[in-house]
Design a protein around this nucleic acid. Structure first.
Lengths: 212, 212
DNA sequence: CCGGGGATGGCAACTTCCTGCCGACATCGG
DNA sequence: CCGATGTCGGCAGGAAGTTGCCATCCCCGG
């Protein structure tokens, strides 16, 4: 695969500076993200620049963002502003696609700055866009996902607390006034949301996301 | 309990600046720590100031410092320089006691700076010192602890990797060319070292310590 | 060469978790 | 009031993890 002519920007600051003009005139912005440390582009626009119509926004996230209070709030706010938000369990990469003409792909962090590849080659962009579309189609709408997990979200902090405190399911369930079966259901949902296959992994990820 | 007249220093920088003179003339420095983010005092002395004899050093750590490569190296280096190092499973607080006359007690982190209470009141210092002594007596000498965990330390990175990857004990054991029984022994030792009662907790702590 | 100490790994008895199944109960639209 | 739908939680069977026990093997000092 040829990576020629793909300029790489280093760090968020440079990204914003160099790509602001793309967002300014965009009519469709599509993004996938596993956290909200990136993509300031997803912020509401400063000022009331009515010269350009609000672009159509599609945002694809992994479930764990909804476990993080502030991230969840951010996502819901975007949704309330009219962005289409979906949740996927796929292991997505951080990506922005603008008008199906530009793709910004997040890479690794070097020297504390994340690298961003800016792809303009039409064929590649189309390809990326179609991959995104596939993930988008198999993803769940935020409203639906929410409806299926109301109980979980309210209990997440307490469940995590109890898990982190090292107590047994039996004890934890009692502490929450739940049946063991239900408690385990919540834990299972939590693990799914975290994409964890074992409790060890869940603990690590939860800590990683700052949920504990 | 009266906390009058206990000056609190904020941040390491201030701590070093304000307490350097205590260390300079100390003949016995005793410290307890759960990590090495603090206590620059435990660094080898810069320069070769022979005007003061090297103080007697007693250092008490929790087992997890030995799981962290760079921390472990630091601790072993101190030990090699003649400091008495012991490992305890007690939930110790960060403390420095100098000549049984001053105690520096680490507190919470506020605004990114950790607070340090400098206690000079003889009664209190004696009390702290005797508490430390009790913990010290029940602790294990580094050499002994090491001898009992040689296998563990060499396997820690791989075991953590496997646990974090979410695979079952069966698979992980095979990957390491170990019997399941032995693999589980290592995991159990690891959990003990981390002070974790459940794998979830172990995952969280491991991530916390940057071991993953 | 022998005996002691330690690591190993199979076995087995538990404990803890994981989940499908199902009856009980609440909620809601008709 | 009724049926549809959804959550709850007990139960049961199975998977995964925890530990004591012990035969085996390796290394070492005598």
């Amino acid at each position: 695969m040829s990576l020629d002519h793909v300029p790489v920007l280093h760090g968020d600051e440079e990204l914003y500076r160099r790509t602001a003009h793309l967002f300014a005139t965009a009519s469709e912005v599509t993004c996938a993200a596993r956290d909200l440390n990136t993509w300031a582009a997803t912020r509401p626009r400063r000022g009331d620049d009515r010269s350009v119509p609000t672009p159509r926004l599609r945002k694809l996230y992994r479930p764990e963002v909804l476990l993080h209070p502030s991230m969840a709030q951010h996502v819901r706010a975007a949704s309330a502003r009219g962005a289409a938000v979906r949740i996927t369990r796929d292991d997505i990469n951080e990506t922005i696609i603008i008008d199906r003409r530009f793709a910004i792909l997040a890479g690794d962090v070097v020297d504390g700055r994340r690298g961003y590849g800016v792809v303009t080659e039409p064929t590649v962009v189309q390809n990326v866009a179609s991959l995104f579309d596939a993930a988008w189609r198999s993803a769940t709408d935020l409203a639906v996902y929410d409806a299926q997990h109301t109980e979980l979200f309210t209990l997440v902090p307490q469940v995590l607390e109890l898990l982190a405190s090292g107590c047994k399911d039996e004890t934890a369930a009692r502490a929450l006034g739940l049946g063991v079966r239900t408690y385990r259901r919540r834990v299972a949902e939590l693990m799914t949301a975290l994409g964890a296959e074992s409790r060890f992994q869940a603990g690590a990820r939860a800590r990683d996301l700052g949920l504990i």
